[in-house]
């Protein structure tokens, strides 16, 4: 059992990546599309691992960052005629900039106050996309731009390789000096500050990294679907991403990749759930949080010696 865990920790990511590379060999076109969406979602969720799992800053604005990346890519290609590669870089840069700006409120606000700010940010982006018709074509949606690569398979292989690289990088960040600083901020901001961690810088960096990953994910989303609509970036999507990272174990990289793939693919396996997909997800999440966390804090209380009820 213990050996199995060591084996999984070492080779889990490799196994997932190889399985993903094999997927196009034995799936129909539609199933393939769903897996592609899963890989694309996993990129964004890796960003959330950094922000929520490492630094402990909750967000409900991830769909808005995704939208920023996707729309910037589309607009750069359509309106300015940039080549796809340059468009990708531009989109990631713009999203990073926007996401970093979102880091500034995090200096003074914490907990629910910060979450409300991100919800507000999400709504602002959605309303802007919906109404800024000359640029985004509003409710009609944006289409007609080229994909990142000429062939769908090509895009897919690039995505899997990029995802694997990002996963390794995220894992390394978690164990680096920066990652330890992030985890210190999560545990106790004041103590971290006293220990010489630059809390503001750490918060800004984790916001920037998250935004960059969200932007990249957005570029691949645009490239996959070829059509962007404000309806695909609602608060519901943000919550789904939150679910993915929580189910993945918050700061567990491989777990988050697997849970994003799983949560994306699940509705296709369970077709009868199509209508009530989010109902089932949120119920699973509620039960998981209630049972798992109550039990784990019970265990913690027991190991810390019985202090009686408060």
């Amino acid at each position: 059992m213990n050996n199995l865990r060591v084996f999984w920790n070492r080779y889990g990511l490799l196994i997932v990546a190889v399985l993903l590379l094999l997927v196009p060999q034995f799936t129909t076109q539609y199933e393939f599309y769903v897996v592609q969406r899963g890989v694309q979602n996993a990129m964004l969720v890796l960003g959330l691992v950094i922000l929520i799992g490492y630094t402990g800053l909750m967000t409900l604005g991830s769909a808005a960052l995704l939208a920023t990346g996707a729309y910037t890519y589309g607009i750069l290609l359509l309106r300015l005629g940039w080549p796809p590669l340059l468009g990708t870089i531009g989109a990631v840069l713009v999203t990073t900039l926007v996401g970093t700006l979102l880091g500034f409120p995090a200096f003074r606000l914490s907990g629910p106050f910060l979450v409300v700010t991100t919800v507000g940010f999400g709504e602002i982006v959605r309303i802007l996309i919906l109404n800024w018709e000359p640029l985004t074509r509003g409710p009609y949606g944006l289409s007609g731009f080229r994909a990142v690569m000429p062939t769908t398979r090509g895009v897919y292989y690039v995505m899997v390789v990029v995802l694997a690289l990002l996963a390794v990088v995220t894992e390394r960040i978690g164990r680096s000096r920066l990652g330890l600083a992030m985890k210190a901020v999560k545990e106790d901001e004041v103590a971290a500050e006293v220990m010489g961690v630059n809390v503001r810088r750490v918060k800004l960096i984790s916001n920037a990294l998250t935004a960059a990953l969200a932007g990249l994910s957005g570029v691949f989303l645009a490239s996959l679907t070829g059509y962007l609509n404000p309806d695909s970036f609602t608060a519901n999507e943000s919550t789904t991403y939150l679910l993915m990272v929580v189910m993945g174990g918050m700061s567990n990289v491989v777990g988050s990749v697997i849970s994003s793939l799983f949560v994306t693919v699940l509705p296709e396996v369970l077709r009868f759930l199509a209508e009530s997909r989010l109902l089932v997800y949120s119920l699973i999440l509620l039960v998981y949080l209630r049972i798992y966390h109550v039990r784990s804090s019970k265990a913690r209380a027991k190991s810390a010696g019985s202090r009686g009820r408060s």
């Binding site: 629910p112 979450v115 939150l242 929580v246 949120s282 999440l285 949080l289 209380a301």
Partner: peptide, 16 residues
């Protein structure tokens, strides 16, 4: 009652 981390409870209300 079991002093679950406030962030988890926050996620719980979002899930609700």
């Amino acid at each position: 009652e079991h002093r679950v981390h406030p962030q988890i409870i926050l996620i719980g209300t979002v899930a609700a």
